[in-house]
Design a protein around this nucleic acid. Structure first.
Lengths: 164, 164
DNA sequence: ATAGATTGCTTCAGGCTTAAAACATCTAAA
DNA sequence: TTTAGATGTTTTAAGCCTGAAGCAATCTAT
């Protein structure tokens, strides 16, 4: 490993040996800044939170409703987390739960009409915020960035084999 | 806004009008996958957490110690959060707090020798994990990605003026 | 038919995070 | 010097998140 590092440096050029780390920190920084700004605006303008917005967005894409499990795997969060989020959204009238007709263990969660309307308002604002934060990039830059992130995604996925 | 969207679509080509949103979701996805993997490995291999690792990393870059405030602004987290993290790290012997000689309100936090050694071990592993997740990208791809993320950072910063 | 495994969900303990309130200390101006 | 505001930190309430334990319902292989 030490040897490999030494050899690699000879090819590393101007960015030096910490290039991958710096790339990761920059990626993290961009994501965090955008996410924080979105969170803050959701709170200030809609008294909402990002996790709840994400639940509503998932339900908006599934008009026939989703089970709790489908919701948690779609959002990549734990089951217990979804339980708590849905409880709060139900309390506020944005979603409704009904028993699954085919499986008495499962519940189907759906947007209420009020929740759907509320979500549509927030989604439009959210869309505008993201657009505004990207205006500094040309169309071509966005396309290349999109493709490179796709390549990164593949690279990450390819590394997963060694520790499940 | 609707008009602008309509006009823009004519130039949007294959990626469609949701391009910015898709770009953001892909950015978020890459970051989340890497972060989750790092968190899991820190837990499994070192019984550590990412926030504590970040505190140690900041202190490692400041051998003379940092105040709580410097730490929280460096990590972009709240003061109260740093208080809790440092308390746990102190309990485990990784950091030590001493009163500031010049300001009786402030405390200086430093790595202990044990904390520094422990951090060095984790940092090397962390570095290797990041390297491994980037291997699917060529050197040139990494450079372009790094630069585009820099441009994105500027774009985001340029959008900040309209709401504090 | 039924025991055993699996699945869907909830609960719980532990930790992270923030914003706001509270406190102590410092600084500067009257 | 007194006082008022600014600054450094901690506390607290509320919410997010996970992994593990536990329960109920379902499925499957005898």
């Amino acid at each position: 490993m030490k040897l490999a590092t030494t050899i690699r440096e000879k090819h590393d050029g101007a960015l030096g040996e910490h290039m991958n780390l710096r790339l990761w920190l920059r990626l993290l920084s961009c994501t965090m800044v955008i996410e924080k700004r979105v969170k803050r605006r959701l709170t200030e303008q809609f008294d909402a939170t990002l996790p709840r917005f994400d639940v509503l967005a998932a339900l908006d894409r599934h008009p026939d409703g989703m089970t709790m499990g489908a919701l948690s795997s779609s959002l990549l969060v734990s089951n217990g987390n979804v339980t708590a989020l849905v409880r709060l959204l139900e309390r506020d009238g944005h979603v409704a739960m009904s028993p699954s007709p085919s499986d008495r263990r499962a519940s189907i969660v759906r947007l209420t009409p009020f929740g759907a309307t509320h979500f549509a308002t927030m989604a439009e604002a959210h869309h505008d915020w993201i657009d505004a934060m990207m205006t500094g990039l040309s169309r071509q830059q966005r396309e290349i960035l999109f493709d490179l992130l796709g390549a990164l995604k593949l690279s990450i996925a390819g590394e997963d084999t060694n520790d499940a």
